[in-house]
């Protein structure tokens, strides 16, 4: 059922059946280290280059998901997947061996939210029984594409974030499970004219604030409706801005807001500055941390909001600002 301007509450429920997540060494050494399915020490993941390494990440996550899930492989109707690389090469090379129809998505670091939204719509609309939603990122391939070669020296400012190396995948299904996707709120592209690509938190915070406000209005609720409101990769700078922006609108999220980018690394000891970022940041935190806490009934209703900064090296060189976007997924623990 369509709600308000940009939200849907599903009439036919969609559930999260199983998850798989795989990360690199640095993520494994972080505060969530013990909760990931697989931690791989080799940053190349046994491949020849960084791009192939990220494809390998997707492959390993998919394999892990297939081994954990009860859903037979031939009953997976679609994969909704994406990454950060140009023309989605990590996804196309990572998923080609599975012989399953794929929708390739680009939502920058918000891709996991986009994939889960579209997957849930497809199931709820009766077009599929089981779909996979997944997203990956790799520190080295992202750094190479968006910034500098890794051997080149540069000083990262305090506002910068560290791209998470990893891949998270979830199996969405129509069959009843403990955690459901109750609805979604799809984000607009929001641009407040910030040009600093080393401060992505500031670029994305307005989009996250816009999405949260829209969700509250569409559903006619407020911040107390959720046990947790969890953004993707705003980092400490973006979180502060988000709380300020929402306070202006009359909402106080200081007690129930969390950010995956802040949770995944120990900023002080791992020198990640403002926090983690990348598609995998929200994807693996969802699998390893958020859904576990929901299954344990620590949280019963969560608004999960992967956030994305929509820039390319071309738009940056041409002097454009960095617009942000966000995709909200309403997760609910079944009684």
């Amino acid at each position: 059922m369509v709600k308000g301007k940009q939200s849907i509450l599903f009439d036919k429920a969609v559930y999260i059946e199983e998850t798989a997540c795989i990360v690199g060494q640095k993520e494994g050494e972080g505060p969530l280290g013990g909760s990931f399915d697989i931690v791989v020490e080799d940053p190349m993941f046994g491949s020849k280059n960084w791009e192939e390494a990220e494809s390998r990440l997707q492959e390993m996550a998919m394999d892990k998901l297939l081994s954990k899930t009860q859903v037979p492989r031939e009953q997976i109707r679609y994969i909704f997947a994406g990454d950060l690389l140009g023309q989605l090469i990590a996804t196309s090379f990572g998923l080609k061996k599975y012989d399953i129809p794929v929708f390739g998505l680009y939502g920058a670091c918000s891709t996991m939210g986009e994939a889960m939204s579209l997957g849930a719509i497809t199931i709820s609309g009766g077009c599929a029984d089981n779909v996979v939603a997944m997203a990956s990122s790799h520190f080295a391939s992202a750094e190479k594409q968006f910034r500098f070669p890794l051997e080149y020296g540069n000083q990262r400012p305090e506002t910068s974030t560290w791209t998470v190396t990893g891949c998270g995948a979830v199996m969405l299904t129509a069959q009843s499970q403990p955690v459901s996707i109750k609805g979604i709120t799809t984000g607009k592209i929001v641009d407040f004219g910030v040009k600093d690509s080393m401060n992505m938190g500031a670029c994305m915070a307005p989009a996250a604030a816009d999405l949260i406000t829209a969700n509250f209005k569409d559903l006619e609720v407020d911040e107390k409706y959720y046990d947790r409101i969890i953004t993707g990769d705003l980092g400490v700078v973006g979180r502060k801005i988000l709380l300020d922006l929402l306070r202006e609108k009359g909402y106080d999220l200081s007690s129930n807001h969390m950010d995956c980018g802040i949770e995944i690394f120990d900023a002080k000891n791992q020198d990640t500055k403002a926090g983690g970022s990348g598609c995998a940041c929200s994807a693996v935190t969802l699998c390893a941390y958020i859904l576990k806490n929901m299954k344990n009934r620590k949280w019963n209703r969560v608004l999960f909001i992967p956030t994305g900064a929509l820039l390319s090296t071309v738009s940056y060189n041409e002097g454009k600002s960095v617009p942000g976007t966000a995709h909200g997924v309403i997760l609910e623990r079944q009684a």
Partner: peptide
């Protein structure tokens, strides 16, 4: 907004 960001960004 850019002014505000400049103020809150840690240096």
């Amino acid at each position: 907004y850019n002014e505000y960001v400049k103020q809150v960004a840690p240096k």
